[in-house]
C-alpha cells in the first residue's frame, strides 16, 4: 500500500509515545546511570567507570547462564516449531469441533506464568504429582530437585506444554487463509499430502512462522517465573537462566551497579537479535511486494 507522506501523523503517535517513553526511556537512562556507579545508598555513590561491565563480561556464572539460555531457547524452538505446525495441520477446520479445540488449545497461554510453574511443580512431585508418581511407579528415579537432567527435561516439557499452542494457533490461522481453490487445484493434479504441504501450505506459513519464531525466541530469552517456581534455578545453578540471575542480583543482593551493567549487556544482545529478525521480516515482505508487482 502506498502511504501518504505526512508528518502530522506524529500527532497521532504522540500520546502513545509519551506513555511508552515514560515506561521505557526514563528507566533505561537510570539503568545506564547505575551501571557506571557503585550505589550504596541515597547519598553514597562512587563513579566506577567501566569496571562493572568488565566484571560482568568475565563472570563465569553469568557466562554459564548465558550459554544455558541459548541452549534452552534453541531447544524449545526446535521442538515447538515443528510440533506447532503438526498440530495446526491436524486441527479440525470447521464446525463446533474447531471452536472446542481452539478454546482447549489456547488454555495454557492464559494461565499466569507463576501458576504454570505451580501446576508443574505439583504435577512432577514424586509424592503427590501424577507424573512424578507415575514415573516412580515405572521404576524411574525421577527427581527434579536432585537431578539436573530431570530438571532440564521437565522445564523443556513445561515450556513446550505452555507455548506450543501459540505456534499452533499462528500456523492454524495462516493455514485458514489459504483459498480452497489451491487445494482443489492440487486435488485435480493428484498431489500427494507431502507435496501439498511443501508447495502450498509451507510457503503460506512462512510469514506467521517468522512471527512465531520471533515471539517464542524473545519470550524464551526472558523466561523467569516458570523455572523460578518449578526448580528455583536448581539443582545447584543448573537451570538458572539469564532473567533469574539478573533478578537475584538486582533484588536479592541489591547490587545495583553490576546488575545494571548486566542488564545493558542483556538488552544489547536482545536488541541485536531482534534487529536481525526485524530486518529479515521487512525484507521478506518487500521481496514479496516486488514479486507481486512484477
Amino acid at each position: 500500500m502506498n502511504k501518504v507522506y505526512n508528518n502530522r501523523a506524529w500527532l497521532l503517535v504522540l500520546p502513545m509515545l509519551v506513555l511508552v517513553a515514560f515506561s521505557a526511556i526514563v528507566p533505561l537512562m537510570t539503568v545506564v546511570n547505575y551501571s557506571v556507579q557503585d550505589v550504596l545508598g541515597a547519598n553514597a555513590r562512587f563513579f566506577t567507570g567501566t569496571e562493572w561491565f568488565e566484571t560482568m563480561l568475565n563472570d563465569p556464572a553469568l557466562q554459564a547462564a548465558f550459554l544455558r539460555q541459548i541452549i534452552f531457547s534453541l531447544t524449545i524452538l526446535a521442538i515447538q516449531v515443528p510440533l506447532g505446525i503438526g498440530i495446526a495441520l491436524i486441527m479440525p477446520k470447521r464446525g463446533w469441533q474447531a471452536s472446542a479445540v481452539l478454546i482447549l488449545i489456547t488454555l495454557p497461554l492464559l494461565i499466569p506464568w507463576n501458576v504454570v510453574g505451580s501446576i508443574w511443580q505439583i504435577f512432577t512431585r514424586g509424592d503427590i504429582g501424577l507424573m512424578g508418581w507415575g514415573l516412580r511407579q515405572l521404576g524411574i528415579d525421577y527427581n527434579i530437585t536432585r537431578n539436573a537432567g530431570d530438571a532440564w527435561v521437565t522445564i523443556i516439557l513445561m515450556d513446550v506444554w505452555h507455548w506450543t499452542p501459540l505456534v499452533a494457533m499462528l500456523c492454524y490461522s495462516g493455514l485458514r487463509s489459504i483459498p480452497e481453490a489451491y487445494y482443489q487445484a492440487a486435488r485435480i493434479d493428484r498431489a500427494s499430502k507431502w507435496a501439498v504441504f511443501r508447495y502450498i501450505q509451507l510457503p503460506k506459513l512462512t510469514n506467521v512462522l517468522v512471527i512465531a519464531v520471533l515471539l517464542r525466541f524473545m519470550h524464551s530469552f526472558m523466561i523467569y517465573a516458570e523455572p523460578f517456581v518449578l526448580t528455583g534455578g536448581g539443582p545447584g545453578s543448573s537451570t538458572t537462566f539469564l532473567s533469574q540471575s539478573l533478578t537475584t542480583m538486582a533484588v536479592g543482593q541489591q547490587d545495583l551497579g553490576p546488575s545494571a551493567a548486566f542488564s545493558i549487556i542483556y538488552f544489547l544482545v536482545i536488541l541485536l537479535v531482534s534487529w536481525v529478525f526485524y530486518t529479515a521480516i521487512m525484507n521478506m515482505q518487500k521481496d514479496k511486494h516486488s514479486q507481486g508487482g512484477a
Binding site: N6, N7, I270
Partner: peptide, 27 residues
C-alpha cells in the same frame, strides 16, 4: 502515513516488547 523516522519508531516499539522486564525492575 509515512513520516520522518516511522520505521525506526516502529522498531523501537518492538524492542520494548522484547526487553526483559527484569532489566527494568529497580528503576
Amino acid at each position: 502515513y509515512s513520516f520522518i523516522g516511522d520505521k525506526h519508531l516502529f522498531f523501537w516499539l518492538l524492542t520494548n516488547l522484547m526487553a526483559p522486564p527484569a532489566v527494568f525492575l529497580l528503576p
